[in-house]
Amino acid sequence: MTANIALKHLETVLNPRRRAEETPVPLGHAGADAVLGGGLKRAALHEVFAPAGHESAATGFAACLAARLAANRSMLWIRQDYCALEFGELAATGLLELGLAPARVLVMRAAQAEDGLRAALEALRCRALGAVVIELCGNPKDLDLTASRRLTLAAEENGVAALMLRFTARIEPGSAQTRWRVRAAPSPDEEENWGQPRIEAELLRNRQGGTGCWVMEWSCDDGIFRDPATDRGAVVSAAGDRPAPAALAKERRTAAA
């Protein structure tokens, strides 16, 4: 067992891709990043719950998280047919307006939750993808502890982020790395303009640390979350759309020299 862990560690150190997968992806919101230990783990399962009526806001949060985790790679959005009927179909124009690239989004229409979960497992094994979003309604019986564990394992093994977007669902035990509850947040009264999308994200579970609740604003131009209380767009924060291995390449160059 120890040897196994050591081997895994060695692989992490030696393989640049592995290292990229292990580096957490910062959300951009200082408070949340501090609690998350620098950011979200890429190769893991994250759950986003939407309270009734806040489905669009949760969708936006999940899409933005997926875009950050996917880091320029494609994402697969698996959704149950019922979700599209009840809460609306994912719109390419909406993604575009949020600063995401619709050309890098594949959509799968799953008739039932079972199909969606099966497709998600298959997709998580494809390393060419950056993230897989699974949009489910209610608490399907196929989504038990085993299913969620399977998704986690597949995500860990292949370095593909798995995001579960749950509508009208009861929170059940699962193997998710983080679990969020997301609702829309009202725009501030003093602001005259129609502001950037603003949500209230509550971190319910975090396997690596504490929890918390923050109001975040998604900056459509920079592709990153902001804390509306502190940086009111004053300074340009770390660019959100930069490919992750850039820093590593530089490191390798110095090693070679």
Binding site: S56, G88, T93, E97, D221
Partner: peptide
């Protein structure tokens, strides 16, 4: 795609099209 995707919103503006669209 034969044509590029065109954004509607200007810099620092909020999205002008919804993320979820009812059929």
């Amino acid at each position: 795609a034969e044509r590029p995707w065109k954004k509607l919103r200007g810099a620092k503006e909020a999205p002008r099209r919804p993320l979820r669209l009812f059929a």
